[in-house]
Design a protein around this nucleic acid. Structure first.
Lengths: 210, 210
DNA sequence: CCGTAAGGCAAACGAGTGTTTACTCAACCT
DNA sequence: AGGTTGAGTAAACACTCGTTTGCCTTACGG
């Protein structure tokens, strides 16, 4: 543990090309899915030799799970901000939908990747995404449990509700993405539907008993 | 318009190998996604020459949309049966979830295919699935509109609610599928969560106003 | 009954694939 | 200052891939 010269010119360059590969892969994945992504394709896009790939990843699936961490890591921050909000229910719904729309506009490739591979053909990536989404559900459940009127909700019921919200948010993000490609209803309509759905769920929540 | 010999020994054999290709493709897709499925792979599994593929499909995407029609066609019947039921809400929820579980058990490959390719890398297939799901939503919306107490629901609100139900059903099917692969919670737990979610939505529906 | 239409075959094409091997050469650590 | 480490190179390996061409064979239809 010592340091004689400038720190990590070595490691810095490595992480740099590693990141370049992740970015290139994400871009290539806009028009195909992970199980058809070629190792050579990625290295070619970055401008390095195929063999150099193995210095960073074992597999394409391996690169895939790195991509998952990166994509859902950024989303993690957004959820934290969201849960900290303390407005009324209607206000909260509006800002949630608006934040999702904004996130999709800023990171469309990340969203597309997660949506595609969540049920895609690569087991390791599927599991990585499922694990990350479970973490979200747990966080949301925690926040929901702290809300007033949630005293008699069981742990399982809270997770059920949180899962409903998370699925709803993921679905909304997908719909915003489709809107960008003119494959579905326009973004404003998506937003309206999403708000209504969350209002309805919120209503059900308020009248939930046993 | 005449018929001198036995009808369609010709066409029958053609449809037979066509169906064999669809079945083979579906099986191959259990471990990869459509955009990585090879034309040669399919013909090899069926036992015919690569060139023979073109007698039936133009592309792999073309085969994909045929697969969509086949997969969601069978589901169509199930939904019809479901909507005809006239029990109380709780009863309806229970049989719905049970029917989904049963459907996934009988047609796991179909479910997996639709789940994978709904947000997958092949545009034509995505659109085919979206179109088919829209048909479901329309049907469900129609039935929901006929229920007592739905007089003051607007057409858009009905579609919003129907979409929520359909998404919920698709998500439940995916979860049952994950359970089969030991990638998620066990089937019984999935069923319980699904029922609770639908109960909650049902509750929200009953208290919906404007 | 015979000409035609069409599903399937055999073979070849150029191109792209993952992986291994031996190598260079610059940053690293002592 | 000099030996070691490791990111990236260059080339070759044995495949697989989609597509085209010409041909065979058989059910079809007038």
């Amino acid at each position: 543990m010592s340091r004689t010269t400038a720190p990590g010119t070595r490691e810095a360059r490595k992480q740099q090309t590693r990141q370049a590969m992740l970015d290139a892969a994400l871009e290539l994945l806009e028009e195909q899915s992970l199980s058809s992504l070629g190792l050579r394709e990625v290295t070619r896009a970055v401008g390095i030799t195929p063999a150099a790939f193995y210095r960073h990843f074992r597999d394409i699936p391996d690169l895939g799970v790195a991509l998952v961490e990166q994509a859902l890591g950024s989303l993690h921050d957004l959820v934290q901000v969201l849960l900290a909000e303390q407005d009324g229910p209607q206000q909260r719904i509006d800002t949630t939908v608006e934040l999702i729309r904004q996130y999709v506009a800023e990171h469309p490739a990340h969203v597309r990747f997660v949506a595609s591979e969540r049920h895609g053909g690569v087991r390791e990536v599927r599991q990585a995404i499922a694990g990350e989404l479970d973490r979200f559900i747990e966080e949301v459940a925690g926040t929901l449990g702290a809300d007033p009127g949630a005293e008699l909700w069981s742990r399982d019921e809270l997770r059920m509700l949180a899962g409903l919200f998370v699925d709803q948010m993921v679905g909304t993000a997908c719909s915003f993405l489709s809107a960008r490609l003119d494959e579905g209803p326009p973004a404003d309509e998506v937003a309206q539907t999403a708000r209504d759905r969350m209002r309805l769920v919120q209503l059900g929540r308020q009248h939930w008993l046993p």
